[in-house]
Design a protein around this nucleic acid. Structure first.
Length: 442
RNA sequence: GGCCUCGUGGCGGAGUGGUGACGCAGCGGAUUGCAAAUCCGUGAACCCCGGUUCAAUUCCGGGCGAGGCCUCCA
């Protein structure tokens, strides 16, 4: 069974045929590094990591190029830099913010079992490429200078809005959008804008300035993947305007009919039934969650829901995920070279149907179970959590031995006291046939 | 207002024009000094109203409900 993927562009599940089977090319929009990544950010990282693994399986590990960028130029980063490092020169302050945040991001998604992407470009390293693109857009009549900015002329592109299903003439301009007077059309968007003294800037033909919010992805994808490539991914919310504008920029600059053949978008994440927001108090960073839960449990919890479905992130769900994963880990060790069975692979090949793939593992034999777990990126190495435990391991083993002796002497009052004592410290004992084991209470 | 998803047992979540997976929880049993863990077994669902059909949860239409995007946002 060939790989089929849901394409936002066609709104249907289509068979996947790469442009070049020797080099399957995928681009995914990465984080803007101004703050710790939250659990919602983890979803595309995990989803497209799984797709990366699947593509490598289908086309060969050396025949897939996966690019996930780091956005390190953004007005939110400037604000954060000025706030956190008021005494430093701006460039230094910005670098402090972005380098720290970027390192944390890579550590976070690594802990969630995501492989490093083939390339992880930073936007600031591609400013010249962006200028080139903007120059091409101006030369081809798709952009214009006004009010100190360079703007994309959306009316110059007949099928602008195709990805998001928006038609320019059907939109009520100005209804909720504040239209800048210098724009020819309400949907025109910024490619380059001038920077004030306290803003980062690069010298350009249009004055000292910085790039708009969309041009970076057009530049970086072209640099690594060419003018036309196979898959472009990101969150649902990026369809408009970000991806729509990327398509407009890339196609109009290069004169190509297509930017990426397949556009994939993961659904949103809610927390305990509500939209995650700082004001609602249900905002969780990946880092916070990793202090309480193994990364593999968080990963498994994410994959239990199909990537296009909304997911409700709940405590009960994480506990259930841990339980399932723990039982499977007790049964088998995932293989270094995973060999999943046909049922598992077919589920994944059907638009990454991870719930069906996971369900198939319940029926699988030990080898196929290990193969499936390994395929999805589970390593079976980090299930115990000791950070929250106030007791050190030697003390636990000592208590277990003492309790063993008490039980042998049928002093059950004492053995129960030891067990309750450990439980109060967050340690659960399990009397298995092979002997007593322990784990952190969850 | 425009565009787009989605409504399956207590919860999570596949799938299908004709006996409604699977997991968690629950219940019964085994095991255990008692628990936990483990093992075996087990009841329970397709939002509403029409239509097409021999037959619809599955297809079509309408309704109701939930969510998202239209503004930086995974």
């Amino acid at each position: 069974m060939p790989l089929r993927l849901f394409n936002t562009l066609t709104k249907s599940k289509d068979g996947f045929a790469p442009i070049d089977a020797k080099n399957v090319r995928m681009y995914v929009c990465g984080p803007t590094v101004y703050d710790f990544a939250h659990i919602g950010n983890a979803r595309p990282a995990i989803v497209f990591d799984l797709l990366y693994r699947l593509l490598r399986h289908e086309f060969g590990p050396t025949h897939v190029t996966y690019v996930r960028n780091i956005t390190d130029v953004d007005d939110k980063i400037n604000e954060r830099a000025l706030r956190d490092f008021p005494g430093l020169p701006l460039n230094q302050a910005i670098r402090n913010v972005t380098e720290k945040t970027e390192a944390q991001y890579h550590a976070d998604v690594g802990a969630l079992g995501c492989l490093p992407s083939t390339h992880q470009p930073r936007a600031t390293e591609f400013i010249p490429d962006m200028m080139t693109l903007i120059g091409q857009l101006l030369a081809r009549g798709h952009a214009y200078e006004a009010g100190g900015e360079v703007l994309f002329d959306t009316q110059s592109m007949p099928d602008y809005g195709r990805l998001s299903g928006r038609k320019l003439d059907e939109q009520q301009a100005g209804a909720r959008i504040e239209v800048d007077a210098h724009k020819k059309h309400a949907h025109d968007f910024v490619l380059w804008k001038q920077s004030a003294e306290n803003e980062p800037g690069w010298e350009s033909p249009w004055g000292r300035g910085r790039p708009g919010w969309h041009i970076e992805c057009s530049a970086m994808s072209a640099a690594y993947l060419g003018q036309t490539f196979d898959i472009h991914g990101g969150g649902l919310d990026l369809i408009f305007p970000h991806h729509e504008n990327e398509i407009a920029q890339s196609r109009c600059a290069h004169g190509t009919p297509v930017m990426a053949n397949v556009w994939m978008h993961n659904g949103f994440l809610q927390v305990e039934g509500e939209k995650m927001s700082k004001s609602a108090g249900n905002f969780f960073t990946i880092r916070e969650l990793l202090a309480d839960w193994p990364g593999e449990v968080l990963r498994f919890n994410m994959l239990r829901t199909h990537y296009r479905q909304p997911i409700d992130f709940t405590l009960a769900g994480i506990r259930e995920s841990w339980k399932m994963l723990e039982r499977w880990y007790a049964l088998t060790e995932p293989l270094v070279d995973p060999a999943p069975d046909a049922a598992f692979l077919e589920a994944l090949l059907d638009d990454l149907n991870t719930p069906a793939a996971i369900a198939s593992l319940h029926q699988a034999d030990e080898l196929a179970l290990a193969g499936g777990l390994g395929f999805m990126g589970f390593s079976n190495v980090q299930m115990k959590i000791t950070q929250k435990s106030a007791v050190d391991e030697a003390e636990i083993y000592c208590a277990i031995e003492t309790r063993k002796a008490a039980r042998a002497a049928k002093n059950f009052a004492e053995s129960d006291r030891i067990r309750d004592d450990l439980l109060a410290k967050g340690i659960v004992l399990k009397d298995r046939p092979q002997g007593t084991t322990w784990e952190a209470k969850r």
